[in-house]
Amino acid sequence: MYNPFSLENKTILVTGASSGIGRAIAIESSKMGASVIITGRNEERLKETHAQMEGNKPDYIVADLSNSDDVQNLSENITSLNGLVNCAGLTKVLPFPFAERKDFEEVMEVNFFAPTELSRLLVKSKKLQKGASIVFISSVSGVYCSAVAGSIYSSSKGAINGLAKAMALDLAPKGIRVNCVNPGMIDTHIFSEGKITQEQLKEDMKRYPLKRYGKPEEVAYAVIYLLSDAAEWITGSNLLIDGGYTLL
């Protein structure tokens, strides 16, 4: 069947695959024919993702990306890749006067330094093949807009966006493409800490022209596009997925 978006014969590593958006990316990519290596911290939830994947399923790899040894081991565990999806991430909701360096460090470690170093190690060791695609799960925050008490999170996503553009230039000679997807609010566990109430989230939802939050699969479809050969001429770009949120 004609399908320019197919991921057949591609091996793809997805971080943050134990939950939310990363889980959807892993499952949907496997359904598109990719062989998907998943990683996360929580083994139980990684197994759940693994069980929902289809086709050829390599073993999952448990790794804590806030630990640089784990990042190194993860890269050493990989032999060859056609795609890397840097999805693991967290948020820390703090009004700016309360946002201390340690809070920035905690978030930057996982949202910025870990994906940077993992990508670098995989490029340097030539495990990312010619024609490979690297996708960062950035956000609308820090790139197109922000949110109250969002200085830490926005900084981490803004940094990723800058990184992706420079990486796209430096990796172009290797035929490796680098892009970001920038989702608005997606229905996941990212606010499970509970500082934001369900009521506030319901209210926030009304600010979306399409009147709902996104689904993890809707981010996965965009990522699949960027991983596929259909996006072979796309590098250094941002793909906005926000239900029209940033139009207003």
């Binding site: 009004p95 006067p97 309360f98 109250v148 008490a149 509970g194 500082k195 109430t197």
Partner: peptide
Amino acid sequence: SSLLALSIIAMVDEQYGVALKGDDIR
């Protein structure tokens, strides 16, 4: 405002070492 609610949560964490939830404020 929602920002003030988050500031109160952050103040309580800083001053009293207690992690409030949005529902506690509610």
